[in-house]
Design a protein around this nucleic acid. Structure first.
Lengths: 346, 346
DNA sequence: TTGAAAGCGCTAACAA
DNA sequence: TTGTTAGCGCTTTCAA
């Protein structure tokens, strides 16, 4: 009933537990004969060495705590999947915890994972409690941050160039002739840089920043719809909306459609992330693609590097987002007062 | 540098480790004074009891291994998220492993999780290796299956009524007047029942089963598109396609669009799952909604019930899918040869 | 109400 | 090449 232990194996193989341990871990020198014997007994007994026990003797648990806002969000799900694969390649498993942007959950999960003695943490954007990160650092627990910088601290970090991303998205819209470009931002750290990019682009294209065209929401379709709705109800509504993630963008599309307007004829919409949703919504969403695989790989590599002390210096990896043009953005339509004679002949 | 142990706490609090252990676990009787003292020292020292150590003394690890085909698939991501929440409520964490429908990965992850001494397994559809499940059973490791029955064995199981689901989807199409209804099935166990439902419905509506209208693919958009493409290229193509999950359905939509046909005017499409994709694709997808929250809760409850031996008898929970009608299905269009006089006046 | 001590399954000196 | 043994941090009897 109880699973066999190293003692059972040792006894049955007629050797000491030290010998068994050595063949399990491929350490020390063991004669081929003994090794084979032990191996066959292990097999016969269906013996699975306990990582619990081995972790207690100072070895690692080979578990990584992954904190993200919401696993049901395709962006995070895709990211998590990439990290899972990379982690597995390096011999680690992921314990995934959704914080829902709530500090109490962050708190709870961090302490839970510390008690479980995970070897390190990967923390993604949307994490609010900086003190918690500091606590991990104090405990000398390796941490890698994704899309989330704490400039005052020295940390492993991987993120995309949000400033440029924000700039490019805005510029794309401006180049299409849009003058009133709204943003629906998200309350996460990467937003700040995207907003900077947005403002710089506005400036470069000689457009005025209008506070009315600025909104903020948590990443749900409903919120995107609500915020876009407000924007569209403005006296002088935007002709283009830059949503800081695909989910919000899709909500915005909903709002546009519900008003009987079309995309991109009446309103252009651009998202951010390039999740699976972007490809299959209607119309297909122009968006800034994040290199999710690269982000995941780098984050895991950095973390495991630190865990196994192969990397000693902290690194900040910056990747770039890329504009993917689909059908949700298009040239600014002429104003209503435009009459037939205005139509450019081409 | 090293994290404090129970000894550090005991020493600093001037008590024995047994006492500390008792206040940690709320066992035995401890005077209020000592308890407070110990608690304050724990806090002061930033002490986090090691579940690794406690697991070694026969306690649980409070970890559940969750095996699913692919976390990047929104269906599984949403399911996992629900289970994560429920597990957390009951004090458990999830270690999620994506098997990609590959037996070798199943094998690898199962033994990995056994070594990690997870308290139990939740295994979802798309798991191929029945022997592996048997092995877990032999080890007396609690297992709950989702959408995956092994009739010969006594197991905890939660699934939706796939037979009825398959029937309803097909009936919906048949009621709309469709005669040639194709299916794109998936190579998972639940497909069998859906196929039965499909065939029964065909029969009830006096339609003939046509082997040419039957295809099978793994759940990716690309595969859905490919299979639908083949179907559409048939001499006598289907006017309706029933895809066994939303992802395949979306691929099928793609194929229809690429041929310049419209949905549902030329081809009706129905999916299964009702993931976030279904709501926002174009046109919004009619689909059979799975009660993901119920499934997740039940699966976790069943598993934890067995782990904590509160439930002794195995249960099979069957939930039902529900038809959600959106815009991707519509009445059968009259044939091309139809002329004006055929148009019904209404 | 508290504590001493054995033991959980394994690793890693150190000896042999 | 193999074995003995002392921990790892905790739980749990059993005594005090």
């Amino acid at each position: 009933m109880k699973s066999p232990t190293i003692y059972d194996v040792a006894e049955k193989a007629g050797v000491s537990i030290a010998t068994v341990s050595k063949v399990i871990n491929n350490t020390g020198r063991i004669s081929d004969k003994t090794r084979k014997k032990v191996l066959s007994v292990m097999d016969e007994l269906n013996y699975y060495p306990s990582v619990v026990a081995s972790a207690l003797t100072g070895k690692r648990t080979h578990m990584i705590g992954l904190l993200l806002p919401n696993l049901a969000n395709p962006f995070y799900a895709e990211l998590a999947r990439n990290m899972e694969d990379r982690a597995d390649e390096l011999g680690y498993s992921l314990v995934i915890c959704s914080t829902d942007y709530k500090e109490e959950k962050e708190q709870k999960y961090v302490s839970l994972l510390i008690r479980k003695r995970v070897d390190g943490f990967i923390i993604t954007s949307g994490f609010n409690n900086v003190d918690l990160v500091q606590e991990l650092l104090d405990h000398k627990i390796p941490v890698t941050l994704i899309a989330y910088n704490i400039t005052r601290k020295s940390l492993n970090t991987v993120s995309v160039d949000d400033y440029t991303g924000g700039y490019q998205a805005t510029a794309h819209l401006a180049e299409l002739g849009h003058k009133r470009i709204a943003v629906i931002t998200e309350q996460v750290q990467s937003s700040a840089d995207r907003i900077r990019g947005y403002k710089t682009a506005l400036n470069d294209f000689e457009l005025l920043y209008d506070d009315n065209l600025f909104s903020e929401a948590q990443a749900t379709v409903e919120n995107g719809e609500k915020e876009a709705g407000k924007l569209l109800n403005l006296e002088d509504p935007p002709t283009a909306i830059f949503a800081f993630n695909d989910i919000l963008a899709i909500g915005a599309m909903e709002a546009v459609h519900k008003r009987g307007l079309s995309i991109p004829e009446d309103v252009s919409i651009i998202g951010f992330d390039n999740t699976i949703l972007a490809k299959h919504c209607y119309p297909p969403l122009t968006t800034m693609a994040q290199p999710l695989d690269e982000i995941g790989n780098q984050a895991v590599d950095l973390l495991v590097g630190e865990i196994e002390s192969k990397i000693t210096r902290k690194q900040r990896v910056m990747l770039s987002a890329e504009l993917v043009i689909r059908d949700s953005t298009g040239p600014l339509k002429k104003k209503k007062k435009t009459n037939a004679s205005d139509v450019s002949i081409q």
